[in-house]
């Protein structure tokens, strides 16, 4: 006669998948499913969860891609959680980590990334208010295989880091250095802390010079809402001749003529996104500029012909 425990024992036999099978299954799940579901199932699954081959890529971007941004994301508590997640992944990956796409991390975790991830190829760290030149310079010196870098909305990173990245990462092809919409910050108000929102970097031309002088192999560049001028754009177009994609949306200090003149030297350019502002004539008095041609040159774009 069978005891009560016997059926359970035989029942559980079929679910004892080999480690390789479990790895295969877990590798097909999203980061969210892994962290919220499988990781917390049982000891054997948790040990499989730490398998380095499951941590080549750490991508939290889909979790942040909701249409509405959360105020909670900008809190130190949330940042600490992201830091700890990243540090755990770095520890489990055992230097096999190649792609990191996260937000709201800090220097604390990035210092460990620099120390432990020599094979890093993609680093996307948008919206990280407490990531500074300190950790980015470490990344530059320790991760020479870097191909793609996104440091958008990271206002504590300066042109100094860009120079170091360019010098030490010769394979860099994609750079995203977008700023928040400082022309109309209403979309960020109440979510992003005001002091951070107002701290938008002013050194657009310095950053442009850093990019131009140290990143000759760049193919994609995004600098939305940068405060660079025609001088900065000229230096980028001369210093990065291989550019195929250039995003200048919201760059208020550039005119259509500036963009046309500068980009004429980019033979490989496939797409350029221009600052599409339209300021109706009614807003201004005609006396402001004296004659319309000057007005048109300053505010007209290819998208909105006046």
């Amino acid at each position: 006669m069978k005891t009560e425990t016997e059926p359970n024992e035989t029942e559980s036999d079929w679910s004892e998948l080999t480690r390789e099978c479990l790895i295969n299954i877990l590798s097909r799940l999203s980061v969210e499913d892994r962290w919220r579901g499988t990781m917390l199932v049982c000891k054997s699954w948790f040990s499989v969860f730490k398998e380095p081959s499951l941590h080549f890529v750490f991508n939290l971007d889909p979790q942040f891609d909701s249409p509405t941004e959360s105020t909670r994301w900008w809190t130190p508590e949330f940042e600490a959680k992201i830091d700890n997640m990243l540090r755990s992944v770095v520890e489990w990956a055992q230097s096999s980590l190649t792609h990191i796409r996260i937000r709201h991390c800090s220097d604390r975790s990035l210092a460990l990334v620099a120390q432990s991830c020599p094979n890093l190829e993609v680093l996307f760290i948008r919206s990280c208010p407490r990531v500074t030149d300190d950790s980015i310079s470490r990344i530059a010196l320790s991760c020479p295989k870097l191909r793609e870098l996104d440091i958008s909305y990271c206002y504590e990173i300066t042109h100094e880091s860009l120079v170091l990245i360019g010098r030490n990462c010769p394979n860099l092809k994609v750079l995203k250095r977008n700023l928040m919409n400082w022309l109309d910050p209403s979309q960020h108000r109440g979510i992003v802390p005001d002091d951070y929102l107002n701290a938008c970097p002013q050194d657009g031309d310095d950053e442009a010079a850093a990019i131009a002088n140290s990143m000759p192999g760049l193919e994609q560049l995004e600098i939305r809402f940068s405060k660079l001028t025609a001088k900065g754009l000229n230096s980028i177009c001369q210093g990065c001749p291989n550019l195929e994609f250039l995003d200048l949306s919201g760059c208020a200090n550039l005119t259509s003529r500036d963009i046309a003149n500068a980009s004429s030297s980019l033979v490989h350019l496939k797409e350029i996104k221009k600052p599409n502002f339209y300021i109706p004539r009614s807003v201004f008095h005609t006396e402001r500029y004296g004659h319309w041609s000057l007005y048109d040159e300053r505010f007209q774009t290819d998208i909105f012909q006046i």
Partner: peptide
């Protein structure tokens, strides 16, 4: 050496 500009590091 390469970039002429002011140091505005926080």
């Amino acid at each position: 050496k390469e970039v002429n500009g002011h140091d505005i590091r926080h």
